[in-house]
């Protein structure tokens, strides 16, 4: 795709102190389960009380991150709002399922149903900033955020938008944490983030978060040079695709100054990362990120936020993000200066 896609501003709510002030990565201490919960800011600074009272957790989180990102980018009204979410508002979906049972399908409060709709955060952002233009929501596990980015890049390339707000949000509920534990998504024993890469056990540490970006064609310090998604690939296809992807951008593996990898310490899937780094990036500094935010459908959005933070502080020309979600959705995001 033609064009460069510059990042004008970012914002993230995550298990880290990422929302305000200077970011310093911290390894959390988990008390009772393998779940990294976000540190929630005071939402009242971003959302009117009359709107806030009805909103569930992920709606507040997503909306606030979006508003903060627009502020950080100096954009009052974007030309498009595009998000990705793997699971939307789990709390509302669960609440409505429980209400249906508890009240035997009578006298049901519509709010959880409305808010369980995956595009509700998008609608709220549009409503709050009065953006009547393009609005889209992708809900495809480890591709949700990536398609939001691709859509944003296409809009810019088509010349149909000046500033595009693109982002992602996912929450983890206790109930869904339990559901996923039944199919072995999480490590069985309580494992601290600092031990997750050495535990040598199957499963990840669960996480959650929200991150937004304003993309535009106006030059800024960091740009997205390329994006490639791979669905259920073999190891060979991951490697072939990486080679072609770098070649397409006129780069060698050695040109990559920093590799941000989605390694999670999950022995079922970490082999993808091990094989890739061993073959292409033996000397390249590698920064994993899931010890900071946990595993979730749109964790790559935190990786992109982290990449921008690093590139603003260090002299890095090219940064590559490689992430995969439980072996099915694999993504490369290439950043340039």
């Amino acid at each position: 795709m033609k064009g460069r896609f510059y990042i004008q501003g970012t914002a993230a709510i995550s298990p880290q102190e990422s929302f305000s002030g200077e970011f310093t990565p911290q390894l959390l201490t988990l008390a009772d389960k393998n779940l990294l919960r976000v540190k929630e800011p005071d939402y009242r600074a971003f959302i009117a009380p009359n709107s806030l009272r009805r909103m569930s957790r992920v709606l507040k989180m997503g909306l606030t991150t979006a508003i903060r990102c627009l502020q950080n980018s100096g954009v009052a009204v974007p030309d498009a709002i595009i998000t990705g979410t793997g699971k939307g508002s789990l709390h509302d979906t669960e609440r409505f399922l429980h209400d249906i049972r508890r009240y035997s399908e009578t006298a049901l409060n519509p709010t959880p149903f409305i808010q369980s709709t995956y595009n509700s955060v998008n609608g709220l952002v549009a409503l709050q900033v009065q953006c009547t233009e393009y609005n889209n929501t992708f809900v495809h596990r480890g591709f949700s955020f990536e398609h939001a980015l691709l859509d944003a890049m296409m809009l810019l390339s088509e010349g149909r938008a000046g500033n595009v707000l693109a982002g992602a949000f996912d929450e983890m509920s206790d109930e869904y944490f339990y559901i996923r534990s039944r199919i072995g998504s999480w490590k069985e024993q309580l494992t601290q983030p600092e031990e997750m890469f050495t535990a040598g056990t199957p499963g990840a540490l669960s996480g959650e978060g929200s991150a937004f970006f304003v993309l535009s064609s106006t030059p800024s310090d960091v740009h997205i040079a390329g994006l490639k998604m791979l669905y259920k690939p073999s190891q060979e296809r991951v490697h072939e695709t990486l080679e072609a992807f770098l070649r397409q951008h006129g780069l060698q593996p050695s040109d990559i100054g920093l590799l941000i990898s989605g390694r999670s310490g999950d022995t079922n899937f970490d082999h993808y990362y091990h094989a890739l780094t061993a073959q292409y990036f033996p000397q390249t500094p590698e920064v994993p990120f899931k010890q900071l935010c946990g595993e979730y459908d749109t964790a790559a959005s935190f990786a992109l936020w982290l990449a921008v933070e690093r590139m603003r502080k260090e002299e890095l020309r090219h940064v590559l993000i490689y992430n995969q979600f439980f072996g099915e959705q694999h993504t490369f995001i290439l950043l340039g200066r």
């Binding site: 049901l108 409060n109 519509p110």
Partner: peptide, 22 residues
């Protein structure tokens, strides 16, 4: 109070659950 149409649905639920009026 600045309520809207969704609140009105919630208030109807309130009447139904607490006063058994549909």
């Amino acid at each position: 109070l600045g309520l809207d149409s969704i609140d009105s649905l919630e208030l109807m639920v309130l009447l139904e659950r607490n006063y058994h009026i549909k």
